[in-house]
Design a binder for these strands. Structure first.
Length: 486
RNA sequence: GCCCCGAUGGUCUAGUGGUUAGGACACCACCCUUUCAAGGUGGUAACACGGGUUCAAUUCCCGUUCGGGGUACCA
């Protein structure tokens, strides 16, 4: 076995990149980086019916977005090519032949229908459905060579007669399984010549010199089956680390019905990749009380031993809170870049807009937005577009009194020499004092006139960013009753 | 059914054979305040249960309960 750490992420391309998979990839990636090891990406596409090319692309795209680069695999170095299981069929066959020759595997000519029928009978008799090992002995003698060659069959593993198989797991310690009950004569190569997961994963990890298998908890129970194959082949067994699962609010395995689980969807929903990564790394791993980590800090402090053993419930609210913190600290130019296409979809163009103006717009919105979506939508009123006035806001603030204030303010604003926050603040305060009104009584109607809503960033900064022209036009529209509610 | 894993506030978690059981999110209150946020301060809230071991168990052991996973020609 290689003395250098070699780990892998081996997703099945049967959908988008799931956050659970992303976290598994992240832990593998961190472990590799921490130990100067190699991070491999392998595509487990043996499920012909469900695997799609689009999913493969989604995995690449998701990994790249999260900045989880792989050292070996598609598009990277390929010393152990190929990295798609469906392209490795000859390799699985070579080892299967070896197993066959050593009588650690045998061909089973039972058809899927016959198998199903037997299972049904067993259930009817109150037994647990199981393969009865009917082809375990040299029954092939009853078949001619021609028949053997032409008949569709599977290759089954000849499970060890008995004994205990111990899975050495970094997190759970030594987990013992009784091989008599846990390892049956399971299918290695399916009737269509494609290997099953439990077999392919062994051959791949062994031939790719994987030293540590870091994967989801759901694979722990299958590990003894895999170890039995390593042993039958005399291959070195890697070190295992089974990660706790990620659950939904109802404590069942996290799935679509609990909310977003696709990495791409999180991106589309306006999350920053570093926020998702930071949230994910804290799901099952911790370093004291620290909540926020830079990539360098994660690598620096990561260790398998510090992983948590119990499953974790995915908390969307906490992810959002983290995203807001990352949004606040994000480079403003980068945010503008990310926002531009979103604004474009909303019909807003930043063409010709001053960079400083855009930065200021983002500044006023960033601490009241949990996602880029909220940020993009929240900026609508800053652009010269017709506003959709919130009916409740209009009713509450554009009253006779409110309108009267706005009317009185109109002239003063038009006459304002320097249109900036300081001057605007002075103007409003002087006016309110003069009228003996509370600031809120004059600012709230103004807010509704300028933004169509009762809540917004500070009024002075909003007006300053709107500029005198647009501000006055909106004021006039409201004063003339030209208000479109929505 | 059988096998395996797990259990600290609602959620993510820190932690210890003797602690006022700590932090974060969420929630509540107050402060700030032109609204909404953000920010600040404070608060409600947890060691699943039963047995052991021990001077002392949240911590170690066993059992129970509950949760999760596996038991495919899915991965």
């Amino acid at each position: 076995m290689a003395d250098r750490v070699r780990v892998r992420f081996a997703p099945s391309p049967t959908g988008y990149l799931h956050v659970g998979g992303a976290r598994t990839a992240l832990f593998n990636w961190l472990f590799a980086r921490k130990h100067g090891g190699v991070f491999i990406l392998r595509i487990e596409d043996t499920d012909q019916a469900r695997s799609t090319e689009a999913s493969v692309d989604a995995i690449f795209e998701g990994m790249r977005w999260l900045d989880l680069s792989w050292d070996e695999g598609p598009g990277a170095a390929e010393p152990h090519a190929p990295y798609f299981q469906t392209e490795r069929l000859p390799i699985y066959n070579t080892y299967a032949e070896q197993l066959l020759a050593a009588d650690r595997a045998y061909r089973c000519y039972l058809t899927a229908e016959e198998l199903a029928a037997k299972r049904e009978e067993q259930s009817a008799r109150g037994e647990q459905p199981h393969y009865d090992r009917s082809w375990s002995e040299a029954k092939t003698a009853t078949l001619t060579d021609a028949e053997k060659a032409s008949m569709r069959h599977v290759i089954r593993f000849r499970a060890p007669a008995g004994g205990t198989i111990v899975v050495k797991d970094v997190l759970r310690g030594d987990v013992s399984f009784d091989s008599a009950t846990m390892v049956e004569d399971y299918v290695l190569i399916k009737g269509d010549g494609v290997p099953t997961y439990n077999y392919a994963v062994v051959i791949d990890d062994a031939t790719m010199d994987v030293t540590h298998v870091i994967r989801g908890d759901d694979h722990l129970s299958n590990t003894p089956k895999q170890i039995a194959v390593y042993e039958a082949l005399g291959l070195p067994v890697p070190i295992f680390c089974h990660l706790p699962m990620i659950l939904g609010a109802d404590k069942s395995k996290l799935s679509k019905r609990h909310g977003t689980t696709s990495v791409q969807k999180f991106r589309d929903d306006g999350f920053l990749p570093e926020a998702l990564i930071n949230y994910l790394v804290r799901l099952g791993w911790s370093h004291g009380d620290q909540e926020y980590f830079t990539r360098a800090e994660m690598i620096e402090n990561f260790s398998l031993e510090a992983l948590n053993k119990s499953a974790a419930v995915f908390d969307f609210a906490k992810l959002e809170a983290m995203n807001m913190q990352y949004l606040k600290e994000a480079d403003r130019d980068r945010l503008v870049e990310l926002l531009a296409p979103r604004w474009a979809t909303l019909g807003l163009s930043i063409e010709g807009r001053d960079r400083a103006w855009l930065h200021k717009v983002v500044d006023t919105l960033v601490e009241r937005s949990r996602t880029l979506v909220q940020l993009a939508e929240g900026a609508l009123f800053y652009f010269d577009v017709p506003l959709a006035y919130d009916p409740a806001a209009v009713e509450k603030q554009l009253t006779n009194d409110g309108l009267a204030h706005l009317g009185a303010l109109r002239g003063r604003l038009a006459a304002l020499g320097t249109w900036d926050e300081t001057s605007l603040e002075a103007l409003f305060k002087a006016y309110a004092e003069e009228k003996g009104a509370k600031l809120g009584q004059v600012i709230q109607p103004m807010r509704v006139a300028m933004t169509g809503r009762t809540n917004s960033p500070g009024m002075y900064e909003v007006l300053a960013l709107l500029g005198p022209d647009l501000s006055l036009r909106r004021l006039d529209a409201v004063l003339s009753g030209n208000v479109v509610k929505a």
